[in-house]
């Protein structure tokens, strides 16, 4: 039981990074980004590619690069079609598949992992836990706290908050809404890519991982309420527990079905999610 708790928290912390960005973009710009898993995978591949040159510092340029990519995706693809919700879904879906095919052509259908940041084993309450997984929990908590501070304390963060609450009013007070959307998209991509690197450090990524991650991200944000960042962070841990519990009690392949069923069930029964207030 304790194992489920500990491993659930660890995987939940990765999902928290993924889903907070996903949720942020939806909350601020009303964009449902089907290419979110792509940022996750691209971040991991980028860091793995740069590792031979930069060592563990490759995480930094990888995250920044994917952030820039997120910005470009918004400017080039999403912004022109933003008024048409279904088109946003289609174009990001097409982008996700396009990137998957390109990655497949370059890296082949092989799982790649990022070298472990630290090695060793710690025993917590009788449960042995690899240190590199505990480290991830630490990093995720720090990053999410920083995100919270950034949004609440900085000027840019306040712009983001304002835009998410009332887009037209923000425009009236002189906020460049398009710029805010781009920056939000970049932040979201950076969070996803960091999560991807951390994930690749424990497990591994392959081109098809993007879609798996997307499914979990969906399940989480819908459970937590579309657009609610805090809700999705709580939901991340719930889904993390469910995932580990199902993997332990049955087999991991049931976990994905559970995530998918969660999505459908909540959309039909309670579309605003557990914590949605809309």
């Amino acid at each position: 039981m304790l194992e489920i708790l500990i491993y659930g928290i660890i995987i939940g912390s990765i999902w928290a990074l993924v889903s907070s960005g996903f949720s942020l973009v939806f909350g601020v710009a009303r964009i449902l980004n089907f290419a979110h898993g792509t940022f996750f995978v691209l971040g991991a591949y980028c860091a793995i590619l740069l590792y031979p040159y930069l060592g563990f510092f490759s995480i930094v340029p990888a995250v920044i690069l994917i952030g820039a990519f997120g910005w470009l995706v918004y400017r080039g693809l999403i912004s022109p079609v933003k008024g048409y919700e279904v088109m946003v879904i289609l174009i990001t879906l097409a982008l996700a598949l396009l990137v998957e095919e390109i990655l497949l052509a370059i890296f082949k259908d092989i799982s790649k992992s990022f070298p472990s940041l630290v090695s060793g084993l710690v025993t917590i309450a009788g449960v042995p836990v690899p240190t590199n997984r505990l480290l991830i929990l630490g990093i995720a908590v720090v990053v999410i706290v920083c995100l919270d501070i950034f949004i609440r304390r900085t000027k840019v963060g306040k712009f983001i908050m304002a835009t998410s609450q009332d887009m037209e009013a923000s425009m009236l007070v002189g906020i460049d809404v398009e710029w805010v959307y781009s920056i939000t998209m970049a932040i979201s991509a950076m969070l996803a890519s960091l999560a991807g690197i951390l994930y690749a450090q424990i497990y591994a990524v392959n081109p098809a991982t993007a879609f798996r991650v997307l499914i979990y991200a969906f399940a989480i944000v819908i459970l937590g309420g579309l657009g609610s960042v805090r809700g999705s962070i709580v939901a991340s841990f719930i889904i993390g527990f469910i995932q580990v519990a199902i993997s332990m009690l049955f087999e991991p392949r049931w976990a994905e079905i559970a995530a998918l069923a969660t999505i459908i069930f909540i959309l039909i029964v309670r579309p605003k999610g557990l914590f949605g207030v809309e």
């Binding site: 799982s111 497990y203 990524v205 392959n206 993997s247 991991p252 392949r253």
Partner: peptide, 17 residues
């Protein structure tokens, strides 16, 4: 006797069990 899905990368729960 556990089955793994193509593309699966997380084996922790299997290993613990």
């Amino acid at each position: 006797d556990e089955k793994a899905e193509k593309g699966q990368t997380d084996f922790s729960s299997f290993l613990i069990k």
